[in-house]
């Protein structure tokens, strides 16, 4: 009987002590800068649960900061945030100019942690090859979009087509949802060809917005890494390691308590998971940026 009481006492102590580990409510706050894709509101909705999850898993407080693409480098330089979530071209720029460290790469779509850029035309347009692009009207994504601008620009240069000289006209749409807009622009005939990210084509097909039979894929770039989490060079290596582990181990079933609801973290962030790539995996994108005379290798 005495032994049983002793065991029960031990069990009670261990249960009570288990609540004594450090919680995320104490210690410093680390800010994560998230690059806005479409709008600040959308960024908050997508990444707030992920940020909460990271706080719980890593055991430190994280705060999300939505940042416009154009402002990202300046604000990072001012040390407004310790961690970054950007597209892969912005990662290259921050790594080249500010020693950003690679943490993890986002997985989304059929290429996983990688993506590609395509040039599309309407199926009935007669535009089949890159050579057919000469004299045509083309619509690109934003200039810092690796799969909506850089990849296609590079594809054309490699095929001997100068986008600045050989197209009759090219434009970049305004506002949010630029990638969807340019796909619709070709679909409705406003432009002859568009620089469409392979991921957007995939998602819109899956959602039934477009059909695979509507478009001709004139050309497609090699695959390169997708959106990327980075850490400023001063971040504690142990913290970065725990941050990375929390991301890489995330599964579609993981949930977090957000606004009183259990939210699926990955689904909420429109992400399939995270991979730990090597910085050398980004060399393919570096090559594209160099050939297209784009940041961080731009020469005037």
């Amino acid at each position: 009987m005495r032994n049983i009481i002793f065991c029960l006492f031990g069990l009670l102590c261990s249960v009570l002590l288990s609540g004594c580990q450090q919680t995320a409510d104490q210690g410093p706050v680390y800010k994560i800068g998230y690059m806005n894709c479409n709008s600040e509101q959308e960024t908050r909705l997508r990444f707030a649960p992920l940020t909460r999850y990271l706080s719980e898993k890593v055991g430190v407080r994280f705060e999300m900061v939505p940042v416009d693409t154009q402002d990202f480098e300046d604000r990072f330089k001012k040390e407004e945030f310790a961690f970054t979530h950007t597209n892969s071209l912005l990662y290259l720029i921050l790594r080249q100019d500010h020693d950003l460290q690679l943490v993890a790469t986002e997985k989304r779509g059929q290429f996983g942690a990688r993506t590609a850029g395509t040039i599309i035309s309407r199926k009935d347009s007669g535009i089949r090859t890159l050579a057919d692009l000469k004299g045509k009207r083309m619509i690109f994504g934003p200039q810092l979009a690796p799969s909506g601008y850089l990849a296609q620009y590079d594809l054309m240069l490699k095929a001997g087509i100068d986008p600045e000289m050989d197209l009759s006209y090219y434009a970049i749409p305004h506002g949010s949802f630029k990638h969807e807009k340019l796909i619709y622009a070709v679909y409705f005939g406003a432009y002859d060809v568009a620089a469409a990210p392979a991921l957007d084509l995939e998602v819109m097909t899956r959602e039934g917005k477009i059909s695979a039979d509507d478009f001709q894929i004139v050309a497609q770039s090699p695959i390169f890494p997708y959106c990327t989490f980075g850490a400023a060079k001063g971040v504690d290596p142990d913290l970065m390691k725990r941050f990375r582990e929390a991301l890489v181990l995330l599964t579609p079933e993981d949930t977090v308590d957000y606004n009183g609801e259990q939210v699926k973290v990955l689904k909420s962030a429109w992400v399939d998971g995270f991979e730990q790539l090597l910085d050398s995996d980004y060399d393919i994108l570096r090559g594209m940026a160099k050939r297209a005379n784009m940041p961080p290798y731009q020469e005037f």
Binding site: E202, T205, G208, A212, I217, Q220
Partner: peptide
Amino acid sequence: GARQQALLKLEEIGR
């Protein structure tokens, strides 16, 4: 050789 187009077709069938 239309591999990306084939992938999109797969998405459609997958629905």
